[in-house]
Simulated assay, not measured.
Amino acid sequence: MEYKENLLSYEDYRTLRESVGWHLFSKNQMQQALDNSLYTIVAVENNQSVGMGRLIGDGMYFLIVDVVVHPVFQKCGIGTNIMNMLLKYVEKKTPTGGRSSVQLVAEKGKEPFYEKLGFKTIPNEFCGSGMRKVIHK
C-alpha cells in the first residue's frame, strides 16, 4: 500500500465517494473542494486508489472530511493510516504552546473507529455524530 500526499484527483475522489454510496456534488464543486484542501491523502494499491481523506481549516480549527476506504479494502488498517497522517499534519502545523481543534462528522455507526483515535463524541441530530479532538503542543 502506498500513501500519496496532496495528489487526490477528481476522478479518484468521485469514484471513492461512489464506492460507499455517498452523494456527489457538481464536478466544479468537487474540484474546487479538492483545490481548497489544506492536505489530502490517497491510498493506492496496484495503481488503484482505494482510500482517501481530506483536511480543511484555518490553522486553529481543522475539519477532517471525506475519509473513505473502498468497501473491498475496509478492515485492513487503511482508514487508520489515513487518519493518523491527517492528525500528524495538524500536529506539525500546531505551533509550540498552541493548540488546534480537529473536528469531523462521523457516519452513523462509525463513531467507535474515531473514538479509538482519541475523538470525543458530540451528539448531533443531523447525521451521525460530531467528533472533536484537541491537539496541544
Rank of each mutant, 00 (worst) to 15 (best):
I82Q: 02
K75I: 05
I78T: 03
K108C: 05
T80H: 04
L87S: 08
T80N: 04
F113P: 04
N81E: 15
F113K: 11
K116H: 12
T96N: 09
K108Y: 13
L86A: 07
T80Y: 01
R99D: 01
V105D: 00
Y114K: 05
T96F: 11
T80L: 02
G98M: 12
M83L: 11
N84V: 05
E111C: 01
K88P: 04
G79R: 03
N81Y: 06
A106R: 01
T96D: 08
N84A: 06
M83G: 05
G97P: 10
Q103L: 11
V105R: 04
P95A: 06
V105G: 01
M83D: 03
K93T: 04
N81T: 10
M83H: 06
C76A: 08
Y89T: 09
L104S: 02
L104E: 08
A106D: 00
S101W: 03
E115N: 07
Q103E: 15
G79F: 00
K116R: 15
E91L: 14
L117G: 00
A106T: 00
L104K: 04
E107Y: 10
E91P: 02
K75V: 09
T80D: 01
V90F: 12
Y89R: 14
I78E: 00
K110R: 14
N81A: 13
F113W: 08
K108P: 01
N84C: 10
L117F: 03
T94V: 09
R99G: 03
K93R: 12
L86Q: 11
E91K: 15
R99M: 07
S101A: 08
C76V: 02
I82L: 08
K116P: 05
Q103K: 09
L104Q: 09
P95E: 05
E107H: 07
G79L: 04
K75L: 00
L87E: 13
E111A: 02
I78Q: 00
G109I: 01
N81R: 14
P95R: 06
F113S: 06
K92W: 10
M83C: 06
V102F: 01
T94S: 09
K110L: 12
K88H: 13
K93S: 11
V105P: 00
S100D: 01
Y89A: 05
I78F: 08
Q103H: 10
G109D: 00
S101R: 14
K116M: 07
G79A: 04
K108N: 11
N84T: 09
F113Q: 05
E107R: 08
N84Q: 15
P112Q: 15
L104A: 07
C76N: 12
I82F: 02
S100W: 09
E107L: 10
T96E: 13
K75H: 14
Y114E: 00
K116Q: 12
G97T: 12
V90Y: 10
E115F: 07
F113N: 05
E115R: 12
I78W: 01
K108T: 14
T80K: 11
V102S: 00
M83Q: 03
G79S: 04
S100R: 07
P95N: 03
L87D: 04
T94N: 11
K93M: 13
Y114P: 02
Q103D: 10
G77S: 05
E91V: 03
G79E: 00
K92S: 06
R99W: 07
